[in-house]
């Protein structure tokens, strides 16, 4: 029995070691001290400035930054919560479920506005709206749609122009895409109409915002729906080719969240890191490409996805099955 356990532990450890990361970087000095392992869904170049400023203030500390998609991040972390110290993700629902399931450590020493934290264990540090991003060239001479309704009408008016040139998240793969889709569906039936129309035009499905923006920039697609606006805005190189629309009918705004693993081996360092992260971001997030967390007054009237247990609704197997069936029905249509 003991050998089996040892074998399993070894196998799990090996699996963790052998993980295929989208990116894996080590910051700070090479020391004997184990690095603070940050598991994240945020691209390294967006996050590096925050890490650098933290390391500048804490000499002798090193950080290992591991990037993967939101869905696999959840899977990897649940399998080995003691391997990681800080978990950062844009999938609020998955993060909240981690906290709800007791994977997060309570950080009672941190002071954060009530709407931007949950149980003192999950802390929001950005707010980023889902955007419709269009290729300017594709809309040459045509009005750029401002709402989902406009977009539906534009697509219906000239279907041949957009056939095969639409993009959105594959909600089956992307945790963030699923979050945006479910929140949209919750807000309005317009979402389903849009999905029907997009499905009829052979929309391409993407795993990540980055790929979608790349395709948009080179003109492979004309419209990307529910892209992270921040990723598009951050791309200075293509800013003249694309246009970011924040739909004025119902904007869906997501908050990136951080939590400290409940079984972290470096609780103080992890807490200090999260404290640094949220204080940097609350102070306007200067010197970082990450969108800052705005104050409560600035957010008045904006639809930000609330950090509440209801986020777990669509993570329910029943709900997910029903939702994905509807989504596939609408989105994947044989031509």
């Amino acid at each position: 029995m003991r050998y089996i356990i040892v074998l399993i532990v070894w196998a799990v450890g090996f699996a963790a070691q052998a993980q295929d990361w989208e990116d894996q970087q080590r910051f700070g000095p090479q020391t004997d001290q184990p690095p603070l392992r940050v598991l994240s869904s945020t691209d390294t170049d967006l996050f590096a400035p925050v890490v650098d400023s933290f390391l500048a203030a804490s000499p002798g500390v090193s950080i290992e930054y591991l990037v993967t998609s939101t869905a696999s991040l959840d899977r990897i972390f649940r399998a080995a919560p003691d391997q990681y110290d800080v978990v950062i993700s844009s999938a609020m629902d998955l993060q909240l479920k981690l906290a709800n399931d007791g994977f997060a450590r309570r950080l009672d020493g941190l002071d954060h506005p009530d709407w931007a934290e949950w149980r003192n264990s999950l802390f929001a540090f950005t707010q980023e709206p889902a955007a419709i991003v269009v290729n300017r060239a594709a809309f040459e001479g045509a009005a750029i749609p401002q709402t989902r309704q406009d977009l539906i009408e534009t697509l219906r008016a000239d279907p041949d122009r957009f056939r095969g040139r639409l993009g959105t998240y594959d909600v089956r793969q992307s945790g963030l895409g699923y979050l945006f889709a479910t929140q949209d569906a919750r807000a309005s039936e317009t979402y389903w109409r849009l999905m029907e129309v997009m499905g009829g035009l052979q929309t391409r499905l993407y795993c990540c915002s980055g790929d979608m923006i790349d395709d948009l920039a080179d003109g492979s697609i004309a419209v990307a729906y529910n892209v992270l606006g921040s990723y598009a805005v951050a791309r200075d190189d293509i800013s003249d080719r694309i246009h970011v629309i924040l739909p004025s009918d119902f904007p869906t705004t997501m908050m990136r969240t951080a939590l400290v693993s409940g079984s972290t081996t470096q609780p103080d360092l992890a807490e200090a890191f999260v404290a640094h992260l949220i204080s940097t971001q609350s102070q306007g997030g200067e010197n970082t490409p990450l969108p800052p967390l705005k104050s409560g007054e600035e957010n008045a009237g904006k639809a930000i996805i609330t950090l509440e247990p209801a986020l777990m609704t669509y993570l329910d197997a029943q709900k997910r099955r029903v939702f994905l069936r509807e989504w596939e029905n609408a989105m994947i249509q044989s031509p």
């Binding site: 709800n100 009530d114 950090l307 209801a310 709900k319």
Partner: peptide, 24 residues
């Protein structure tokens, strides 16, 4: 099929952010 509403869990939000569990 149990396509329950968002409000089913939303109504359980508390100021202390209580944890919520459900099973069907």
């Amino acid at each position: 099929e149990v396509d329950f509403p968002y409000s089913a869990l939303s109504m359980l939000s508390t100021p202390s952010d209580d944890r919520v569990f459900h099973a069907i």
